[in-house]
Amino acid sequence: MAVRVVTVNRVAKLTWVERLYLPMILKGLWVTSRHFFRNLWGFATGRSEAFVVQYPEERVDFADAFRGMPVLVARGDGLPRCVACGLCEFACPTDCIRIVPGELPDDAVERTPRSFTIDMARCMFCGLCEESCPEEAIVMSREVEIATFTRDAMLYEKEHLLVPEALLERRLGFLRAEYGRERAPAAPRDGA
């Protein structure tokens, strides 16, 4: 394995053909027309390789790891899985989560958020809330279209945030694949 230092091949002087402008313009046209005809062929045959996506008619399929806006996972009975422990509130770097805990007397978990507000205008989609959650109750969805006309509409309450588990399967599947991973014992730094 080696690192070499190389000097870049600088064009000392352009050839007279290149200095004539016209041949280089034709060369440029050749490159761009190649792209054009390839795209046209793809369009005509229905196997378009064009890079542009005709949003909103067409949508991009995000990767499994994609982090969209954070949402709350709803249990089968419609209540949030969240037990209002407040860890996401602690972990959030922008302080965009506000939780008011409440009681749930006739349930095994006993605690539930009375209100759960996320200020999407502040949220920076970093995913630390999801990483810190010990209940798999807040996850990053695949939703990104959250534009509104007012800032107040960016305050998402519990009711807006609850999403049934079935709709979040892809994200939960992605997260669960990571759960079993082992960790390496902490090795001291060399020379320390």
Partner: peptide, 25 residues
Amino acid sequence: YDQLDFDVPVGTVGDNYDRYLVCVE
């Protein structure tokens, strides 16, 4: 990085053209 194989490109003049070539390399 000490186990990797790569080149470090350098220019000669230090003008914009060299910067472009260094970036491409």
